[in-house]
Amino acid sequence: MEPRPLHKSYQRVLKCDGRSQREEPRTDDPTAVARAREGDLDAYGELVGRYTAAAHRTAALLGAGDDAEDVVQEAFVKAFNGLPSFREDAPFRPWLLQIVANETMNLHRGRSRRAGLQLRLAAYGDSGRTADPAEEAIGDDRRRVLLHAVRQLAHKDQLVITCRYFLELSEAETAQVLGWPAGSVKSRLSRALSRLRERLAVRLGEEVPGA
């Protein structure tokens, strides 16, 4: 099953920032971009509201840490200044997230140590998706194992998995956001999944002594 169909519901979950409670009709991206390009700051404000959560999530997962809010602000200002050279028919979101990703990686430019991705499980099970606590517990354990396996992967593997599954970007969007050639995403992704599968098979097959 392609993860993409989950994307829209995921976006709805992300939108709980108070702004989306208005009943006004939503300006679509190309219209908002065209107006913002003419200097309409209200139109740009719509884009900011629409994509703050995605931008912030991108910055946070890619390791911006305490600078995540600054990174997001900076990215929106840069994106606005870059609008005149932005191709009107291009999708705004991956272009914006590419700027966010670059800003986040630039936080560490010049420092010898490269900051890692910030991939941690939330402290509590919050989705309430299943009523069965036992099932939830099994799920938690399995997620811990899976996350641990992801964090063992090479940095670029983690990057592509973060973009594709944790940020739910398409392959093309992932290539754009990371600034990679399009074909390299597909191949790195399939290798990363193979490596993950191997680790999981080993891990889940381990005998727990005495248990």
């Binding site: 920032d17 946070a60 997620r143 899976l146």
Partner: peptide, 17 residues
């Protein structure tokens, strides 16, 4: 992986508009 992604610890997004 998608399910895992939705359980990751990400702080609430800021208001930057």
């Amino acid at each position: 992986l998608v399910e895992l992604g939705r359980r990751l610890d990400v702080p609430a997004p800021p208001q930057v508009a």
